[in-house]
Amino acid sequence: MIVFVRFNSSHGFPVEVDSDTSIFQLKEVVAKRQGVPADQLRVIFAGKELRNDWTVQNCDLDQQSIVHIVQRPWRKGQEMNATGGDDPRNAAGGCEREPQSLTRVDLSSSVLPGDSVGLAVILHTDSRKDSPPAGSPAGRSIYNSFYVYCKGPCQRVQPGKLRVQCSTCRQATLTLTQGPSCWDDVLIPNRMSGECQSPHCPGTSAEFFFKCGAHPTSDKETSVALHLIATNSRNITCITCTDVRSPVLVFQCNSRHVICLDCFHLYCVTRLNDRQFVHDPQLGYSLPCVAGCPNSLIKELHHFRILGEEQYNRYQQYGAEECVLQMGGVLCPRPGCGAGLLPEPDQRKVTCEGGNGLGCGFAFCRECKEAYHEGECSAVFEASGTTTQAYRVDERAAEQARWEAASKETIKKTTKPCPRCHVPVEKNGGCMHMKCPQPQCRLEWCWNCGCEWNRVCMGDHWFDV
Rank of each mutant, 00 (worst) to 15 (best):
L443E: 07
R245F: 03
L342M: 11
H215S: 02
Y143L: 14
V186G: 01
P132M: 11
E207W: 04
C95Q: 14
H257K: 00
L123A: 15
Q389H: 14
P294F: 06
Q400F: 13
S223Q: 07
C201E: 00
R366Q: 08
G85Y: 13
G94N: 11
P137F: 11
V56W: 04
P133H: 11
P153V: 12
G319L: 05
P99L: 12
C360Y: 02
E300R: 04
L297M: 09
G328A: 04
V269W: 03
W54M: 13
Q197A: 14
E370R: 04
C441H: 00
T83I: 14
S205D: 09
K27W: 01
D53L: 02
Q64W: 08
N448I: 08
H422L: 08
P419V: 05
D185C: 02
G114V: 11
R396M: 11
V425Q: 14
G139I: 13
S181G: 10
I2S: 13
Q34F: 13
G77A: 11
S10W: 09
E374F: 06
E404C: 08
D280E: 11
W54C: 09
L102D: 11
H200Y: 08
D86L: 11
V36Y: 04
F362Y: 10
A92R: 13
N428F: 13
A339F: 14
L162P: 00
Q317W: 06
G292Q: 08
V121Y: 12
P153L: 07
G203L: 02
R156Q: 14
F209A: 13
Y285Q: 02
R163D: 15
E79T: 13
C95V: 14
Q316F: 07
W453D: 01
D62M: 13
E300I: 03
S255M: 09
L272R: 02
G194C: 05
R442T: 15
P247C: 04
S109Q: 13
R366E: 03
Q282N: 14
C241W: 00
I411E: 12
K369D: 05
D243L: 13
V30Q: 01
T83D: 12
S136Q: 12
V43M: 04
A31R: 01
H215M: 01
R191E: 05
L307A: 11
V29T: 11
S108Q: 12
R42N: 04
Q71D: 07
R89C: 13
C293G: 01
K32V: 13
N90D: 13
S131F: 10
S407G: 07
C154K: 02
K27I: 04
V117D: 15
D86K: 10
C150A: 00
H461N: 01
A82V: 14
N273W: 05
I122W: 11
K161M: 08
F264Q: 00
L272D: 01
K413F: 15
K416C: 06
G77K: 08
C196S: 00
S10Y: 14
S127Y: 10
R6D: 04
R245M: 05
G385S: 08
C323Q: 15
R170Q: 10
R156W: 07
P113E: 13
P133M: 11
W447H: 05
N428T: 14
M327L: 09
V43C: 14
E321Q: 15
L283N: 13
G292F: 04
